[in-house]
Write a protein that binds this DNA or RNA. Structure first.
Length: 483
RNA sequence: GGCCCUAUCGUCUAACGGUUUAGGACGUAGCCCUCUCAAGGCUGAAAUACGGGUUCGAUUCCCGUUAGGGCUACCA
């Protein structure tokens, strides 16, 4: 009975996908999937001056990476294309023309200079700056003649002088705005491109968008859009204006105060699952105490009713924790595939898959980012090049050389080099030497890894293998001596 | 300046008039575990911006104040 749910994400190609943009896209996507509807990607490139080369592709790549796949859009034609506004110009012209004919829009010949003067004067007089409607009442025949004569012009919509408009927002409830505070918005610019306001209304209607889910920055221009729907005689979509994402100082999330591009987080070692999970929770929650969700689980639970109204600070600490949680949910194999290329970048080629898997298992609960695997455990794959200096001073005492040397001998003689046996050897030696096991453990870890922190020592030794352990132990003695 | 939106721990949030000594999570402090670091377990500190109403009863409804944000372009 009810019409098909169709939603869209409509970014302008001015750079990389912003995490706020990802959240908007995600909510649209979740809503569509939940309702069995369609999610459309539309590129809003009506501002020629802000166009950035390659932005569309990078936007699509980021969306694709995060798993927020669109059903229709560039490279994925549905029945409503094209999905790039610069390829839809005739559509906008046709509709603008219709408005002109009905007297709901008019040609405006004001120069940018005049507009600026008017604005300056209004500001000086402490009046709200707005277009003075200088061209609103030029007789249609007269302005048509000027247009034909080739005079520079724009097309503006005629906003009623009195009255007010109330509309229902799915998130905010009733919103009322007086017509008089609405400008006679430019609909078609002098370069013949439509402005956002015309293009968004025409496209949302033509693409049969049922729910307009977008950022709160559009809330105050929604009345203009609704007026346009009324002028065209079209049914209104439902509107849902999402709260903004904020910097730690509560201003609108921006570069300058940290990373905002999805790509930044991806390259730092955040999982797509974590980014999606985190961003979903900025303004929405399932109503109970669960926090770790997969995309599929989000689809099952998402609802616009549970979206909040106030802005949310993008808090990296929590993202880190969520990333940790998702890393643990990955299999060692999955993680290995992600870690391999990172190790490769560091010049480490992994030949033994099983070995890598075991190293990952040992590190899994100790990392926050995928990058950490390569960062904190390179010693599994190559000789430690440097030894933590503070650790050396703290754990490498005068007697340590002989102790480690003795340990190396004992281990070399060990037949079955597994962690239980290793532990037995280490503890027995400590007892014989009448020292605390820690006196052997810490310098051993330092010698083997160059670090003072890491996974359980016995497990680590087992994985490294007897040859490597004995060799590194003896090498370390040499290196420490030389200092 | 005008218009619109918003307002619970530092942060993300729960509570849809009473079951609340306002719950959870991140972070933070302490303790436990322990070879280190994590992880895990336990405990603690930490919030309803303020002022009026409405009501037998307000975090919850209404009004005002304050604060923050958004918009106010031939940008989206």
């Amino acid at each position: 009975m009810s019409a098909q749910v169709r939603v869209r994400f409509a970014p302008s190609p001015t750079g990389f996908l912003h995490v706020g943009g990802l959240r908007t896209a995600l909510y649209n996507y979740l809503f569509a999937k939940r309702q069995g509807g369609k999610f459309v990607l539309r590129i809003e490139d009506t501002d020629q001056s802000r166009k950035v080369e390659g932005a569309v592709e990078s936007l699509i790549a980021a969306l694709d990476w995060s798993g927020v796949h669109y059903d229709e859009g560039p490279h994925k034609d549905g029945a409503f294309g094209p999905y790039v506004q610069s390829e839809r110009l005739p559509l906008y012209h046709k509709h603008a023309q219709q408005l002109i004919e009905r007297g709901q829009a008019y040609y405006c010949f004001c120069t940018p200079e005049r507009l600026d003067q008017v604005r300056q004067k209004q500001i000086a007089m402490k009046l709200p700056p707005s277009y003075d409607r200088h061209c609103r009442d030029i007789p249609p025949e007269q302005s048509a003649t000027r247009v034909v004569a080739g005079e520079q012009h724009v097309i503006r919509m005629k906003v009623p002088m009195g009255g007010e408009m109330t509309f229902e927002d799915l998130i905010r409830g009733k919103v009322t705005i007086a017509h008089k505070v609405l400008d006679d918005q430019v609909l078609v610019k002098s370069d013949k491109f439509p402005t956002y306001h015309l293009a968004v209304v025409v496209d949302d209607h033509l693409m049969e968008i049922s729910h307009v889910i977008r950022g709160e920055e559009w809330l105050s221009s929604t009345p203009k859009h609704i007026l346009l729907y009324q002028y065209f005689g079209w049914n209104l979509p439902q509107f849902a204006h999402l709260p903004l994402l904020l910097n730690p100082d509560k201003t609108k999330l921006s570069k300058r105060q940290g990373d905002v591009a999805v790509e930044d987080y991806r390259s730092k070692g955040y999982l797509k699952e974590a980014i999606v999970n985190f961003v979903a929770f900025l303004g929405w929650n399932p109503g109970d105490e669960r926090e770790i969700f997969s995309l599929e689980e989000l689809i099952k639970e998402f609802s616009l009713e549970r979206v909040g109204k106030s802005g949310a600070v993008f808090n990296v600490e929590k993202l880190n924790w969520i990333n940790q949680q998702h890393i643990r949910r990955k299999t060692d194999k999955e993680l290995a595939e992600m870690v391999k290329p990172i190790l490769m970048q560091k010049g480490i080629a992994v030949s033994n898959e099983g070995y890598l898997l075991k190293a990952i298992a040992l590190m899994k609960e100790r990392v926050t980012l995928v990058q950490d695997f390569a960062e904190f455990s390179s010693y599994f794959f190559e000789e430690p090049k440097v030894f933590d200096e503070a650790g050396r001073q703290k754990h490498w005492e005068a007697e340590t050389n002989q102790r480690i040397s003795a340990l190396a001998d004992e281990l070399e003689a060990l037949k079955d080099f597994n962690h239980q046996n290793i532990e037995t050897v280490v503890k027995a030696l400590a007892e014989r030497l009448q020292i605390k096991t820690a006196k052997l453990i810490h310098p051993t870890r330092l010698a083997l890894s160059g670090r003072t922190v890491g996974p359980g020592l016995y497990e680590m030794m087992e994985l490294l293998g007897k040859e490597t352990v004995v060799r590194r132990l003896r090498n370390a003695i040499q290196m420490m001596v030389r200092r």
